[in-house]
Design a protein around this nucleic acid. Structure first.
Lengths: 231, 231
DNA sequence: TCAAAAGTGTTTGCTATACACCCATGA
DNA sequence: TCATGGGTGTATAGCAAACACTTTTGA
């Protein structure tokens, strides 16, 4: 029988050993002209005092995506952002306590949507540039590397980068996002030609006046909720 | 404490409930000029008598990839093939017995490498064309749909399709694989130009004489073990 | 009037596509 | 000699990259 039995003395019991399942989230944003990600300082063992990805144990009736969203909200107050499953990491020994399978997620949000504050489990939450990460708990450095490759890889065949911008944006802001991600300058005319040819964006008709220069046209995604794949 | 405790009466016990973890494998091959995948007929409840993906429960000290390879070998006798992690499926209720998180894998092999025979757990193993699948157990239809999209999506920016061919092959055989996968005819001259421009393949110098027509040059991958990403 | 970002076209090279015939073999 | 798949080149169109100046605004 595989049905679990619960009792006060021994807890939840199974005929065969079961691993624990967690979700961990790699949340990227663009801050201070660099690609940064959110880490929490662990308040408990193991790796107490080390930096780690936000995440935690799956509740037994909870969907995986919901778990990732919940843990992120609990530990950081961040909600309603783009989440996609990244991969599952389960090398034996990656957690010294017990066998733990971690389902990792990639999350993206514009800085404007974020107001991070550390929750109970975490001593602190902080942003780190991808280029200047501290030493990390568990195998989180590997998970971050996979997440970063996935983000960069998806840049030129999807609209994933738009998830790093607020609902409306100018082409200048869009270009800054792409330049930060590819870590290189992009020709303005070619970039605008490319962007304006996308079916996924449309001008709102408004102008945005910020700073002492010519106002910029404002754009939005035709579908903000999901990313599109380009041909 | 999260450490499990084991005893004969109650089994393996944890302070919090733990899901079970399985791996399931979508193994594609090309047979009879169509893309087919391997299914097993379930010998036990739930879904006894239904068709399902080969797979099974993770052993507590076993790596995820190893579990996928082991289950595939146990149930089908198939070994040493291309395996990549596809995604993790954990909707509550997807297995009526208990909470089960399934890590799905995409596997590819040339027909010549396969000698499938049903193992103990399975009443039978059989190949089905992707276009003519039976009704499936659990959420396996969804997993297969994701696997198929992934395979097709990777076709034009990776060498993934070569995993469906034996170590050496002719350009005609390669073209047949691509035509089967995209389900369309491809111009012979353009295809050959493209293939021969790939850094990943090289001529062995041999000729293959099969059938009553001109012999074909034989090619191989420069690196058979891993797939390459094209620019 | 100056600084700062917005906005705009053309040329050039490369890559993808369309397309038809001869070659070597075994039966 | 015939049927079968192997093997080859060129012309065209569409896309990506390089490249510099004018416009509008606020200070």
């Amino acid at each position: 029988m595989a049905h679990p039995s619960a009792n006060a003395a021994t807890g939840y019991c199974y005929q065969y050993p079961h691993p624990a399942v967690t979700t961990d989230v790699v949340l990227f944003t663009i801050r201070e002209d660099s690609l940064q990600l959110l880490l929490i300082e662990r308040g408990h063992e193991p790796f107490k005092g080390h930096w780690a990805l936000p995440g935690g144990f799956l509740e037994i009736g909870e969907d995986l995506d919901a778990c990732a969203a919940r843990e992120l909200a609990e530990e950081t107050g961040v909600e309603h952002l783009y989440l996609e499953q990244l991969g599952t990491f389960g090398t034996p020994g990656r957690d010294p306590r017990e066998r733990v399978i971690s389902v990792a997620y990639l999350a993206l949000a514009p800085e404007s949507a974020l107001a991070v504050q550390a929750g109970d489990d975490a001593a602190a939450a902080a942003w780190f540039p991808v280029k200047a990460l501290p030493t990390l708990a568990f195998d989180h450095a590997e998970i971050i590397a996979v997440a970063h490759r996935r983000l960069i890889g998806k840049l030129d065949y999807s609209t994933i980068a738009f998830q790093l911008l607020p609902e409306t944006f100018t082409l200048g802001e869009l270009q800054q996002v792409y330049e930060t991600l590819v870590d290189a300058e992009i020709d303005k005319r070619n970039f605008r030609k490319w962007a304006q040819a996308l079916e996924q964006i449309e001008a709102t008709g408004e102008l945005r006046r910020r700073g002492k220069h010519r106002p910029a046209r404002v754009y939005r995604l035709t579908q903000r909720d999901r990313i599109a794949y380009l041909k």
